[in-house]
Computed example of a mutant assay.
Amino acid sequence: MEIGLLTAFIGGTLALLSPCGALLLPAFFASTLGSGARLWLHGLLFYAGLVLVLVPLGVGAGAIGLLFSTYREPVIAIASLLLIVLGVVQVLGLGFDPARMLPGARGLQNQAQVRTGMLKTVLLGAVGGIAGFCAGPILGAVLTMAATQDSLVLSGAMLAIYGAGMVVPLLVLASVWGRLGAKGRSVLRGRTFSVFGRRLHTTSVITGVLMVVVGVAFWTTNGFVGTPALLPTSTQAWLQERSAVLAHPALDVFAIVVAAVVVLLIWARLRKRRHQPIRQEAAKAAADQEDR
C-alpha cells in the first residue's frame, strides 16, 4: 500500500509536468503571487480545490472496486492490463481529457477564468485536478489503483496524495521561477524526438514507461500486497509507540493555538503588504505638501 501511495504522489508530479501544459501553473503562480506567505496560502487553497474534486473520484472508484472484491484476482489482472495500456497510450502521446467526461467540468473551467482572488485559486485547483489531455492517462492510472483498494478511505487518500504530488512541486517551482532562467525551464519542459516518423515527447515517454512498470509490478505483487514495506516492521512499531505520546488533550490545544498564530501572522503580513502602497502614496503626498 505504501508503494501505491508513493506511486500516486509521483503521478501527480508527472501530471504537473505533462507536455500539454508543462509549467503553465508554476508560471501563473510565480507571475501573479510571487513568493512568500501569499504564495503558500494560495497553494493551500489550490490543494483544497484539488481535494474537493479528486477525493470523491477516488472514493467512487473504490466503491466500484469493492463491488467486485470477491473477484480480487481477475480485478487485479484487469487493472494491471489497464495500467499497461494507459502507459502505452501515454508513451505515444495519445492522451485524453477527463474533463470532457465529467458533468460540470466545463462550467468549472469557465468560472475559473472569470473569477478573481482566492476563489479563482480554489477553482483552478478543482479544474487542474481533472483537466489535461496529456495528464488524462496518469489520472486514469491512479484511479485504477484506487479502485483496487479494500477501503474507501485508502481510495480517497490515494487521490489526495496524487493532488499533493501536484501541489508540492508547483509551489517549489513557483518559488524559484525567477532563478530558473530560460535554460532551466527548457530542461523541465523536456523535448520532442521522432521514432519511425512519429513525434514523441521525453516527459510522456518517461511517464508512460513508469506506468507500464507499475502495471507489471501491480500484476506480479497482487496489487502491491506482496511488496516489502518502505519502512521495516520494527521501525513502524517504534514510530507508533512514540506517536502515542502525542495523543494528549494539552498537545491538541497547543497545536490549535500554534495554527491560529500562524494564520494570524500570515493575515497580518498580507494586510501590511496591501496597505503599504497606500502609506507610500500618503507619505509622498505629505512630502509634496511640505515642499509647497
Rank of each mutant, 00 (worst) to 15 (best):
H248W: 13
Y162D: 06
Q289Y: 13
G190M: 08
R185S: 01
A146Y: 03
V258E: 01
S18F: 00
L92S: 06
D150G: 14
F9R: 00
F254I: 11
M211F: 14
M118I: 08
A105D: 03
I10S: 02
L24W: 01
I10G: 03
L83P: 09
T221S: 14
L50E: 03
F28P: 00
A15D: 10
S234Q: 14
W238Q: 15
G4E: 03
G184P: 03
L86R: 09
L265E: 03
G156A: 08
V167S: 00
P228M: 02
T202C: 14
Q240K: 13
V257Q: 02
V127M: 07
L119C: 05
G132W: 06
L16H: 05
G140Y: 05
T116M: 06
V59S: 09
L152D: 05
T221C: 03
L16R: 03
M1R: 00
R115N: 12
M158Y: 02
Q280E: 15
S175H: 00
Q240W: 07
G117Q: 14
R273G: 10
G208L: 09
R100H: 13
G223T: 00
R72L: 08
T144G: 09
A285H: 09
A30D: 01
G156P: 07
H248K: 08
E73M: 12
F28I: 00
Q90K: 07
I76F: 05
S243M: 12
V59Y: 05
G4K: 01
G128H: 07
Q111T: 14
E281C: 02
L33I: 01
V51G: 10
L23Y: 02
V91P: 04
C20I: 11
E73D: 14
P98R: 01
A217R: 11
V167C: 06
A237P: 01
G62K: 09
S35Q: 12
F28H: 04
L108F: 11
W177V: 03
Q109V: 10
A61D: 05
E241I: 02
V257F: 00
Y162W: 11
F29I: 00
R273I: 09
I78H: 08
L180S: 02
P277I: 06
V75D: 04
L171H: 00
F29Q: 02
A182Y: 01
T121C: 08
R242P: 04
A157P: 04
T116A: 12
E2A: 04
G87V: 01
V75E: 05
L239I: 15
G107F: 11
I64M: 09
C134D: 15
I64L: 13
G58M: 07
A22T: 03
D288N: 15
L17M: 05
P74E: 12
M118Y: 12
G43D: 05
V212P: 10
